[in-house]
């Protein structure tokens, strides 16, 4: 494991825990897209089915369990515990417009036509676009709480660090996975506009708000 992969994983972990803590501490999930969070739970569920079939390392298993647990806890907080604060009126992105095409693509373009491999591919494709309802929600309301922008930055940074990890692995291990790389590029590109706003506004102490 190289340093980019490790910091990528840690950045992902920070993002997930930051969101969970924010909701827990404020007792509110206002401004958070439940649809994005349900899709992330679906991403982890379909990707980590190999927890039961393929042991890699204690690190690998522990991280998978943490990601899964936090992801389900987040969905539980949004749709059950703090349901009253959920901003459903602004969370209007049609999730089926992502899930159905992504499912079709996973059937057509995969490494191996087996159930586990198709589900893994589905999770990679879905992850690349799962943030869209959240970004759409911010565009719609025109603003985001600063802590939410820190969450988004850490989440976007994770895949960007994975991209560097894949370049590293290609040079030093001769390893590459085209499905993960293409989806990872798409995923990172979706955050570019947000990264720009984060760096020019949030890091200068301003709240992220979009012009009306």
């Amino acid at each position: 494991m190289n340093v980019f992969r490790l910091t990528g994983d840690l950045s992902h972990l920070v993002a997930i825990i930051l969101l969970l803590l924010k909701i827990w501490k404020t007792r509110s999930c206002a401004g958070i897209s439940g649809k994005s969070q349900v899709m992330f739970a679906l991403v982890f569920t379909t990707r980590y089915l190999d927890l039961f079939t393929n042991f890699i390392s204690p690190y690998n298993s522990v991280m998978k369990v943490i990601y899964l647990g936090c992801s389900y806890a987040t969905v539980y907080m949004i749709y059950m515990k703090f349901k009253a604060s959920y901003d459903g009126n602004h969370d209007t992105f049609r999730a089926e417009f992502l899930i159905i095409p992504v499912g079709g693509l996973a059937f057509l373009v995969n490494h191996e036509f087996t159930p586990l491999e198709i589900l893994w591919t589905f999770s990679i494709y879905l992850e690349s676009v799962a943030i869209l309802p959240q970004l759409f929600m911010i565009t719609k309301t025109g603003e985001a709480e600063t802590i939410t922008t820190h969450y988004l930055f850490a989440l976007g940074l994770y895949r960007a660090l994975y991209l560097i990890n894949w370049i590293w692995r290609y040079y030093f291990e001769g390893f590459f996975d085209l499905i993960a790389i293409v989806a990872g590029c798409v995923q990172t590109i979706l955050y570019c506009d947000f990264f720009y706003l984060y760096i020019t506004k949030v890091l200068h102490g301003k709240k992220l708000s979009l012009p009306a």
Binding site: N60, K64, W120, A180
Partner: peptide, 10 residues
């Protein structure tokens, strides 16, 4: 193999 290497990522 490629499959095994791939699955070590999260």
């Amino acid at each position: 193999s490629e499959q095994n290497t791939k699955k070590d990522e999260l």
